[in-house]
């Protein structure tokens, strides 16, 4: 890469970083696109582009970008983003396949997997996963996670009113 091109790339990333930090997703999307024009194999710019689409709730475009055969190398590590787009596009089966194709169940994939199982009405598996998540996660969303767990228990109870309910701890 020529020194000039490298310098342009750093400048473009500085601009992208600025918009990322101010959550200006429209401008960040343009900045990421600019980088990919100079250097089409920039994985981080590609990642940012996909995050922008997701943040702008353009799930269709996010998924199309990730599944475009041209981008397969760039998209290989973005399984969470792909599964999240599929989940939001109401394709929970495909989303689950994507999650389970990942080499490792990261915390993000775990959280998403629980939501997908809920959507698929696999409440027992979902319950087990939320138990694990509640025990092993400390963040600012613990109340919301407990609410999700309560929703799972409510569905389990509705399906099988006579069964012994899982205990809430």
């Amino acid at each position: 890469m020529s020194a000039n091109k490298e310098n342009n790339l750093v400048q473009a990333y500085l601009e992208l970083n600025k918009f990322c930090q101010s959550s200006d997703y429209e401008r960040a999307l343009k900045a990421a696109g600019k980088i990919l024009q100079i250097a089409p194999n920039e994985q981080k710019a590609f990642h940012c582009k996909v995050v922008c689409f997701l943040q702008l709730h353009n799930f269709k475009e996010a998924l199309a970008t990730l599944t475009n055969a041209k981008n397969s190398a760039l998209a290989a590590d973005l399984l969470f983003e792909k599964a999240y787009a599929q989940y939001r596009l109401n394709s929970p089966k495909e989303a689950l396949q994507t999650v389970d194709s990942a080499p490792e169940l990261t915390p993000a994939l775990k959280e998403l997997r629980a939501q997908i199982l809920y959507r698929l009405e696999q409440y027992q598996d979902c319950y087990n996963l939320y138990r694990d998540l509640l025990k092993n996660t400390t963040d600012e969303y613990e109340d919301e996670r407990k609410a999700n767990m309560a929703a799972v228990v409510a569905n389990l109870a509705a399906l099988n009113p006579t069964s012994e309910l899982p205990q809430f701890d």
Binding site: L14, K44, Q55, E81, L112, Q115, Y141
Partner: peptide
Amino acid sequence: KPLFFDLACNFVEFPNLDDKTG
């Protein structure tokens, strides 16, 4: 209908660009 929150959306984050910006 019970409340159910989308918590996975909090993991949709930009990658760290420090190595690219110097």
